[in-house]
Design a protein around this nucleic acid. Sequence first.
DNA 1: CGTTGATTTGAGTAAGATCAAGTCGGGTGG
DNA 2: CCACCCGACTTGATCTTACTCAAATCAACG
Lengths: 249, 249
Amino acid sequence: MRAATLDPPFPCTHCPLRPLPGFIDGSAEERTFIARRKLGQLHVVAGGTILPEGQPAQYMFTLLSGWAFRYKTLSDGRRQIMNVLLPGDLVGLQSHMLDSHRHSVEALTDVSLCTFGRETVWAIYKSHPPLGFALTWLAAHEERLVDDAILSVGRRSAVERIAALMVHIFKRAEAAGLKQGDAIPFPLTQEHVADALGLSIVHTNRTIQHLRRAGLIRLADGTLSIGDLRALRRVALYWEQPAEPRPLF
Amino acid sequence: MRAATLDPPFPCTHCPLRPLPGFIDGSAEERTFIARRKLGQLHVVAGGTILPEGQPAQYMFTLLSGWAFRYKTLSDGRRQIMNVLLPGDLVGLQSHMLDSHRHSVEALTDVSLCTFGRETVWAIYKSHPPLGFALTWLAAHEERLVDDAILSVGRRSAVERIAALMVHIFKRAEAAGLKQGDAIPFPLTQEHVADALGLSIVHTNRTIQHLRRAGLIRLADGTLSIGDLRALRRVALYWEQPAEPRPLF
DNA sequence: CGTTGATTTGAGTAAGATCAAGTCGGGTGG
DNA sequence: CCACCCGACTTGATCTTACTCAAATCAACG
């Protein structure tokens, strides 16, 4: 399943993410500090495992391109997806702090990741306090995403959950520069959606169709577009604060 | 509902939490740094609001004594409890990073909190890198708790959820030094349990009774004890790593 | 002693799960 | 080129878990 290669460092000066409006530039000095620390790019094919639950943490990554997701499983195989990971997202910060991976991460599409060594994290705090702060910021931000997710899974109905997830992913993909026209790529299968929302596949399917027939989402061929965002938000009881610019490592 | 008073600083040298085995001591220098930054103790009565969702973040707290919980609500009132807070837990770190409270925090019992000002967080990163690291550690740890919670809510049955919650709270209360004999205080009502697990009150009640009759938990008069921890774990499909010692602010 | 919050019980219902097939499209190998 | 395979998606039928509504109990408290 796993096919991974480590390429020589892609020059951070040509980082495709940094120029996006959603990311904080940081000082030139900080940027070169990060660039120097980068070990290279890891490529993982769709379906491959990026981090395996239980193993000791070794590297930390920034997702450079492609989609991934974070999940846990129960011993009998039931799976819960905690979060979807998009370009710019940090992979493995939590694992790094707690010394071992408390969840798995799997590539949803072919993926490339900027790779950092274990010692980098500590170096950040010691020599670049603002970057240390940024790391905590990212941890707090990630926690907020999971907080939102648990609200959905615990208290929203199936339609509301699907609607909320679609809005959420749409906005994040947009911020990551993935929107083309009025559509974003949507590489999740209905099984992924089900596992993210605590629903069965069958019910997920019927609920998606319901939203499709209501004209609230267009979802086909791995592409999602939303006709009336406000209406979909209303269905989901979902209002988020406008996304703040975020640090990038 | 809210009744809060701010007392003059309780001397950190007599901190009742620091000596507990679950907490990291830190250097004497770090301890005095924290002690100096402490503004005083905030007391909130049971049922009072500690942080209100939506408001700008102003203070950060360490829960010194009592129980609290973190939650979000949907616009129609449905409530999801994300996490229970015990002595030693940091309150409002996430809010601090994201500038405003993305969730509410309510006191479950009468509560007292060590209070820190907004500027303290930044000072930590600038002058005490290891404490900055510890802050991120705590954020990562909190995220792990929510990750575990969403696994329960999304993929465990009602019995499994209740069982997992009981084990989880029991172990955490124990680590916070709250175990007396083989029992811990359990100030949550069944409504709290329901809102933490995404269940209705009625079903929560029946499920708790089920576990009681099976002899797996004793829960009465605000007190919880567990006869056979291993058996309860088996019911919950719940195995956690042994708790690591954690930083304390 | 009435009120209030928490827990409990009963009855009926609905949302969503499970089981079982079937479709559809894109590879793959003969 | 075509048969067939496989994964993703669909559909139908049935069943179960958990929800809703309603009311009773019970203890604490003023």
